[in-house]
């Protein structure tokens, strides 16, 4: 295939309720090549999870207004009907979550659910589907996979369940995997196992991955490219090294400075002042301006342009300054 696998242009998501309108995503553009891993980094309310869910049209249709253009593997996602969506979800794109119990039905065995998913998307019999389920459980390194086929989700430990959910998501060999903080609820020693497993499976299956996380370290471990979100927009993007080492936007700069790591004992943390913006009352200019050290009147009144810093490295800022770390 030529051209990008995923292309998102001007994606906006509004949530409407009787009291207020929440501007969750405010014009997100990005493209993803087949087999590429994009880390979407942001804090709560930055719009990272909403962007991900919009790619699968998982947001409640009655309260949500989606606009923009989202194309995944040739499918125009925002105009698909229910039937097309069913084939698309799980077949072309699948998703893993923070809480694996959400992905599984507690009353069926793990093996049956994986086999079920395979039969829904491919023209194969039950025996072949179960064979695929077993193969998948082995590929995600679940010990004694054969026995685990007949286990119920609640009989597995946290890390095991996460692996089983990955097996379920990859059973139909999707071209794109969406990962919504899949390791956040896990213990440290288990988290690293899952991250390494995902990296390995990504190479093996050659699929593209969008990995949403709030943890810089996790994003570094999995991403080829990274995009940092704030106030429903991508404020900086580039290779992982660009974003971590040659950070240009004041928000990721502040985020990196305030993230505790290594031997920082005795030094005062450079915290970003203030709190994230209220998404129902977005400022007119740069969303980060109220918290930014460098903000001037332009920042507060005019939306910032995209500044190209290097090939593929862009920041949405009136005065980007690369700070080398």
């Amino acid at each position: 295939m030529t051209g990008p696998l995923v292309s998102v242009e001007g994606l906006r998501v509004l949530f409407k309720s009787a009291d207020r309108t929440v501007h969750a995503v405010n014009g997100v553009d990005f493209a993803l090549q087949p087999g590429e891993v994009l880390g979407l980094l942001g804090e709560s309310g930055s719009g990272k999870s909403v962007t991900l869910k919009a790619l699968l049209r998982l947001l409640p249709a009655s309260r949500t207004t989606l606009s923009g253009k989202v194309t995944v593997a040739g499918h125009d996602v925002l105009s698909m009907d229910e039937r097309a969506l069913r084939q698309y979800r799980g077949g072309v794109v699948s998703m893993i979550f923070q809480e694996p119990m959400l992905a599984f039905d507690p009353v069926f065995t793990v093996g049956d659910q994986i086999a079920e998913a395979v039969m829904r998307h491919e023209d194969v019999g039950r025996a072949a589907a179960r064979g695929r389920a077993l193969e998948m459980l082995e590929r995600v390194r679940i010990p004694s996979a054969k026995r685990r086929l007949d286990a119920y989700p609640h009989e597995m430990s946290g890390g095991m369940r996460q692996r089983a959910m990955i097996a379920l998501a990859l059973a139909c060999k999707p071209q794109l995997l969406l990962a919504d903080e899949p390791t956040t609820a896990l213990d440290a020693t288990v988290q690293i196992q899952i991250l390494l497993l995902l990296r390995e499976l990504q190479k093996e299956f050659g699929m593209a991955v969008i990995f949403v996380t709030h943890d810089v370290g996790v994003a570094v471990e999995v991403s080829d490219r990274m995009a940092v979100m704030y106030g429903g927009r991508i404020v900086e993007r580039g290779s992982a090294a660009d974003v971590i080492r040659r950070t240009a936007h004041p928000y990721p700069q502040g985020l990196l400075a305030s993230t505790v790591h290594g031997a920082m004992r005795g030094t005062r943390l450079e915290a970003i002042p203030g709190a994230p913006p209220d998404l129902s009352r977005m400022p007119t200019g740069c969303a980060f301006a109220p918290r930014c050290r460098l903000a001037d009147d332009t920042c507060r009144s005019v939306a910032p342009p995209i500044a190209a810093l290097a090939p593929g490295h862009e920041a949405e800022c009136h005065q980007p300054r690369v700070l080398s770390a």
Binding site: A271, P273, G274, A275, D278, R291
Partner: peptide
Amino acid sequence: SSEAGQVP
């Protein structure tokens, strides 16, 4: 005091 982000 200024860090806490106070919006009346």
